[in-house]
Computed example of a mutant assay.
Amino acid sequence: MAIFLRSSIRFNSTLGCCGRGSLKAAFQAPRSSIRLYHGAAARKAAVAAAVQSSPTPIPPFMEAKSQLNVLQRLHDPAFYEGIAKLMDLRRKYIEDRSIFIRGEDMIPLLKALGVKDSDFAPLKLVSDHLGVDPTLNYREIKNGRFCFDFDTQSIRRLEKQPFTLSVGEEFRRHDSGKIREFEEVDNDLQLNTVLQALMVFKVFFFAGVPTAPRDLLDYSSNKFICTLFNTRTFTDRNVLGEPALEGVHTDGVDHTMTTLLGSNNMTSDSAITLMHDMREVTGSRLNNSQPALIKGHCQHRNFLDTMIIADTERKHSLTPVYAQDEAKRATRDMLIFFTRRPTLPGHVSYNIDSTNSHTRLPMEIPMWVPQTPAP
């Protein structure tokens, strides 16, 4: 188990965090050997066709009967061993408002929830078939919307909607407030039991865990909206991939979870995540941020390394993806889970926040929520 360092910033290989040398590099100016270009006009024409693509046929081993059913695990002692560890992690998250869990520790937890061993390998390859990003030319992407419904005790796929993040949600970038369309997450991902277990896993970290409220979210609702992004950020001779071009920011939600699927040809100082106090100026670049307001840091290095953060109580930023061999492409593949309550009238996303189920790509699995006292 690993949690964010909160006082000093020093190397700790057990935590999978970066040392002073790597962190120092995070504050340096971008490397001159990379040509920075973040426009994406040439890619926009491909977006309309991309979002209309037909769903991938469901392979025989991904039929509905093979989806994750955590309720079938209730008779297995290994399930309760996993739950005990999850509750310990939950307590750490409530205390620190952020947590980092190594992939090697995630695997037994996900298996306890019912993951099939045969689903781990396909998950590593799912990012090979992503769509174009309409505003960032160094990223490939798909997304999908899900509802964590505490009335039905289930997680279900929601119909496609556009996406936006605004300056009012502490997100400052050239595309802030723009309505964006992405190709949809398909059956190869949503019917993978590892992905489904990650969703059940996340429930433990937000169910009954209050955070500082956001404006115009319905905190009386028993539903949470989860927008899932599958992304590949890449760097090559023509472009520098920045997982957070926007600098210091929040994601406009209540809880954010990020999970690494894989990386290739990245340097050791690539994609370091820094946690910032909410007093840090939104949009600040790393080399202009205040060291005294850094609350912790981590680095996703291995398959299933996972970070969770209370998005209304910690801002965050990331260093770019640098290529170890500059003659070759460097890539970083992630799953990103944005989770919040439904919106209220007046919210920038109110008219694109449907809770209708997806009819073309249906998915619904049960979730299990332990009865715990309020923190």
Rank of each mutant, 00 (worst) to 15 (best):
R180S: 02
I94P: 06
N12E: 14
R214G: 08
E95Y: 12
M334S: 05
D96I: 03
P57G: 06
P55R: 10
F205P: 01
E313V: 02
P59V: 12
L86M: 13
A64H: 11
F163S: 08
A121R: 15
Y37R: 14
F79P: 02
A121Y: 08
E170G: 00
H38D: 12
Q299M: 09
P375R: 10
G39M: 05
D96C: 06
R139D: 01
V70G: 08
L113P: 05
P122I: 02
L23E: 04
L71Y: 04
T227E: 15
A112C: 06
T355E: 14
K85W: 01
G241W: 09
D96G: 00
L274P: 00
E63T: 11
V239F: 14
N192E: 05
E183K: 09
S22D: 13
A310N: 09
K142P: 01
F224S: 02
E246F: 09
S270R: 06
F205E: 02
L189N: 01
S7C: 01
G82S: 05
S176V: 03
F148K: 00
E280N: 05
I9A: 14
A78H: 09
R214I: 10
M275Q: 11
A310I: 02
K111D: 12
G241N: 07
K142F: 00
Q67H: 14
L245F: 10
C298E: 06
E246L: 10
T282C: 14
G21C: 06
P370Y: 01
P370L: 06
V70Q: 09
M199H: 03
A374H: 11
A50T: 04
R332T: 00
T135C: 14
T233E: 05
M1H: 09
M106N: 02
L335C: 04
E81D: 12
C17L: 08
P375W: 10
A2L: 02
D311V: 03
L245A: 10
R301E: 03
H276L: 13
R139A: 04
S268V: 11
K160M: 09
M257I: 03
